[in-house]
Amino acid sequence: MSFLVRLPREMPRFSYFNVEVPFAAAKPRTLTDAGGEAILGPFDGEEAIAMMPDLDAGASATMPGALLPDLLRPVIDHHTRGRRREAALPVVN
């Protein structure tokens, strides 16, 4: 993890991370806590499978395939605004 914290401090263009490992939920928070303002975007990278725990842990977005972005966007919008309950509700059109 220290390399990922050091990288954006030494090379500011590298400030977004796609955390794509099993059980990644704790990693975005650890990364942002250690890297502070140098880490602009810790993203969930498990095709949004664990998106809610990852958002709760500090991920700022997700890196899913192109299958469901229109369904995932409201979840991220609600979560970002502190409306976790609404974020967790199923999307109904």
Rank of each mutant, 00 (worst) to 15 (best):
R6T: 12
R9W: 00
I76M: 14
A38Y: 09
A25E: 10
R9E: 07
A50M: 14
Y16H: 10
T62G: 13
V21M: 07
V92N: 03
V91A: 09
R85L: 04
R81M: 04
A26I: 03
A24K: 05
D70V: 14
P74S: 09
A50W: 10
F3G: 07
N93I: 01
T80I: 04
M11G: 00
A48V: 04
P42H: 07
S2C: 06
F17Q: 01
R84P: 00
S2F: 02
G58P: 09
T62N: 08
R83G: 01
A26T: 10
P90H: 04
R83H: 08
P8M: 08
M52D: 03
P12Y: 07
P22R: 07
G58D: 08
P90G: 05
P22T: 03
G35E: 11
M63T: 11
V21I: 08
V92G: 00
R6I: 04
G45C: 14
E46L: 15
T62H: 07
D77I: 10
D77E: 15
L55D: 04
D33H: 06
F43A: 13
A26G: 12
F17M: 02
T30G: 05
P42G: 08
G36W: 06
D44H: 13
L68Q: 09
A61M: 13
L40K: 15
G35N: 11
P90C: 05
A66N: 12
L31T: 03
D70C: 14
L40Q: 14
A24N: 08
R13N: 07
G36F: 05
D77L: 13
V5Y: 04
P12C: 12
L7G: 04
V91N: 03
G45W: 05
M52K: 04
D44N: 15
A25V: 02
S2L: 10
V91H: 02
R9M: 07
F43K: 08
N18I: 02
A66I: 13
V75H: 07
R84Y: 00
